[in-house]
Design a protein around this nucleic acid. Structure first.
Lengths: 105, 105
DNA sequence: CGTGTAAGGAATTCTGACACG
DNA sequence: CGTGTAAGGAATTCTGACACG
């Protein structure tokens, strides 16, 4: 939908924008930190979102973080995001029933 | 600055998104309707803006318009836009003359 | 005028492997 | 573990030209 999420950019451009090598970018994919699309011919396509993600990864790597840690961290983020959305739906349904008790604050 | 204006997309992707052939896209460039960037190696790079522009061009071509007409039309649009901006600056300076004192000096 | 196409070459990307550490 | 690199091939793109109309 959004420009940011469309996977249309080749790896060469991503290299330029992130300062990472092709090797690094492909390795991060191997470690399941990013998930580019593929053209019919098999060339990888990245989104602006992926590029931002890669710049974030690059920073964490420079700080000495390892790929599996970054992945774990990301999983946690998604989980808590999911929890928040579920919580939101619950609130939408049963809202303000127990306002007195604040769960975790 | 904006994602929409960054010229990063290859011609193949532009073809997919616009439904135009490479030949058509290159021809519209030859006629100075679009202005892609180039990589070091010489491959063309387009922006989301360019893609929208091309879809607009395609529509006009289908309506029987010729490339020079489209270009002329575009020039007019830019000219009137420039005029508006100049007018805007003039207004900013000399606009509310009836006011006691000019805001900038 | 606008577009298709075949031709030949150059730039880009891909995979799997070896290397270092 | 994370990254560089040389190897060979495949996908992608480029230009200039001929063709049709």
């Amino acid at each position: 939908m959004n420009y940011k999420k469309k996977k249309l950019i080749t790896i060469g451009v991503v290299c330029e924008m992130t300062g990472l090598s092709e090797r690094q970018i492909r390795y991060y994919e191997e470690r399941e930190l990013i998930f580019p699309d593929r053209s019919k011919g098999g060339t990888r396509k990245y989104s602006f979102f992926d590029i931002e993600r890669l710049m974030d990864i690059a920073e964490k790597m420079e700080d000495g973080m390892q790929t599996f840690e970054i992945k774990r961290l990301d999983k946690k983020k998604n989980t808590s995001l999911r929890d928040q959305m579920i919580k939101g739906q619950i609130n939408a349904r049963f809202g303000q029933q127990n306002e007195a008790k604040g769960p975790n604050r």
